[in-house]
Design a protein around this nucleic acid. Sequence first.
DNA 1: TAATCGTAGGTTTTT
DNA 2: CCTACGATTA
Length: 891
Amino acid sequence: MTSGFDDIPFFDEEPDAPSARPKTNREPAPERSGGSGIAARALAARNGAVARPSYLDGLNPEQLRAVETLDGPVLVLAGAGTGKTRVLTTRIAHILATGRAYPSQILAVTFTNKAAREMRERITHLAGEAVEGMPWLGTFHSIGVKFLRRHAEIVSLRSDFTILDTDDVLRLIKQLIQAEGLDDKRWPARQFALMIDGWKNKGLDPSQIPEGDSRAFANGKGRALYTAYQNRLLSLNACDFGDLLMHPIRILKTNPDILADYQGRFRYILVDEYQDTNSAQYMWLRLLAQRPGRKSPSPTPPHKGAGLGARSARLGATSDTDVVDGDEFPGDAPQPDSLPPVGRVGEGSSSHASVNICCVGDDDQAIYGWRGADVDNILRFEKDFPGAAVIRLERNYRSTAHILGASGHLIAHNEGRLGKTLFTERQDPEDEKVQVHAAWDSEEEARAIGEEIERLQRGDGADGVKHLLNNMAILVRASFQMREFEDRFVTLGLNYRVIGGPRFYERMEIRDAMAYFRLVCQPADDLAFERIINTPKRGLGDTTVRNLHDYARARNIPMLAAAADIVETEEFKPKARKALFDVVANFQRWQKLLETMAHTELAEQILEESGYTDMWKNDKSAEAPGRLENLKELIRSMDAFESMRGFLEHVSLVMDAEQNEQMDAVSIMTLHSAKGLEFDTVFLPGWEEGLFPHQRALDEGGRNGLEEERRLAYVGLTRAKKRLHIWFVSNRRIHGLWQSTIPSRFLDELPPDHVEVAEAEQSYGGYGRGNPYGQSRFDKQEPFASSYSSPGWQRAQANKTEATRSNWGNRSGVSVERVGYGEAGPTGRVIQGELVAKSKIDEPSKFAIGDRVFHIKFGNGNVAAIEGNKLTIEFDRAGQKRVLDGFVDKA
DNA sequence: TAATCGTAGGTTTTT
DNA sequence: CCTACGATTA
């Protein structure tokens, strides 16, 4: 577990948990954790009756309450860095340890696999092997799959249905659009995929979508297309991601006995990141959170009040499995195919009042409204679950008081929040204020941030300590901003890591390979068939594929089967016929081998015999070696699975693969992907109107859009533990042309007490000096303007004002100043950068001049010069670049 | 089948 | 402006 991923300090790291405190659970509870239940417990403990379990040690009173309030609905409003994950995991451990439920009776949902994995690890840590048997801990989607595999037939699927990724979905939709005789340029599949996504986020099936939505696409054929799409999925025995929730909802709604069964089963429901739930997820939760109906056969409750000792005894017997897996839902007959109206789930039923559901979230960190998340879900929790206990976690363990003060003040500008005020006990006069910096343009911004990073790395900062790059991050609003930093860091030879780019299983070669495997395991997978039928090239072009497609559709058989038929005929020209024959024969053979051969071996054989690996071996492009490497990695990763099918199942849901965390590197990522992470030092560049808040969020989302942007800013600010640097530039290239920009309004929303406008340490070339634009109008209007008196801020304000009046084109005077900076400032810095590099010059390089090397970004090249750990490489495609040797491998 | 030209779009992302 | 993808052409 890397520290960067830890929301909260764990056990001994807790700031207010002195390490001197005894860890034995015989010890009475510390006084500060004095809820009444605890007091009683402590008393009991003193009498030797109940030992206070050690996992409760170090929780603050609110956290403890969140853990111990087990009956009835609970909403935990957990501010950033207040120990959210810890509460969730400890709560589960507590439920298990007190014997209130079997692991199989707890439903715990997260949004990401990462969160689920982390939760599982932590619970294991707290409660021992108890979690091994927690079958219902996972993402909404993975739990959806598990459920759907059991009840697939109710929605006319087989339980071995495939899960399509976005690529497949897109191709499928495109086919449907073409089949309708529509122009796929005018009606892009992309757009329709987004619409479907939106509908499914809301839990709407084709009959339920608003008429307006239907009319908005394809000359009013929206609904028909959606219907056709769903039918096509069924005939492919496939689901998209939305279906993994839609189908379970439908099953639960139309089958009261199944519903009652699950309602009875899940004694405790826990939801992470509740602020991010969409309507469909909400419906699903509401269905399960209702009290079981009268006739529901509820599983025997485990005996209550058992302590830790009793737990392990019970675990030995492990009746978990038969509670979940043993019972095969008798009386669960397939239902007719009619779709129920989507009403408001659970309406009119007051019985859900005492369901043990615990939702944890932070309305201030709701940043996924644009993909269907509905903040209202968290805002109206108390109405949905009457009598809910609402617990606020406001004690922050992460950031300095300045960072907390700044973020708290910013987010207070939002309306309609549940309202929390984070505080910390940390009082260190050494803590620096949040720094706001101005730069002329994005290039200078990147340059200056690079310098600051190197300064920290070197130990030239205020604290004189050398800092690891791993503890620093640059968080951007939009991914195009990353490029500037990458370019700069490559020239500096500064290690960086981009988080969130295209992921392993989304890469072309991986998808291709997976399509082969899919088709072997599932011959009806037409999408896989179409993906690889002519990859590598076999002379089976569009026309052949279309013929096959038509033939297959006419007979209602899979394309692979159609191909098998057609090669027996004279339908195709000999060349195509031969190629197709080979493909069909190959697949038939592989299918047979599936039963006998080890799956990794078979996978390798498939890629060899299909010519797929050869295709990349013959490819001269820069990416080819990397792709072959990825394929090897893919096969290697299959080892951990029982079978090829098992592997496919895993991959369809878990799209990430871990990367090398070895090297020390600065992280570059978007604000969105930074949620949940923390870093000592955080840089937030690009705080300009139009970029942040983003213009489109403003245009399309109005006030809500702005508030979501503000929450995003809040997320960014609260990622920082110790040092926070915010940047804005005066000029940025937007769609290729230079534009003057105005500092973000969010800057004005920061409290002066906790913020200082950083003075540039080097010469700025004086672009603000002798400000020709006079006093800023913002001086009067801004509430805090009086405290921003430093020259830097005034300069910033000056930029702000002039920026509103002019643009790059007619500001020749200023562009000269830029040149001035360009020559003065950075030149010195570059030299410093090299000095750093030279400290390593003595170490012999593992490369020699003339070596053939491969770089992940620039491809193949030859080493032209070596200075310490820096190489100058003549790349085949990218030209000459200086790179760090850690970034290249011998080719 | 590869290479080249033209055009559209250029926020955020999981599963 | 610059990239990525699709369509057209050799």
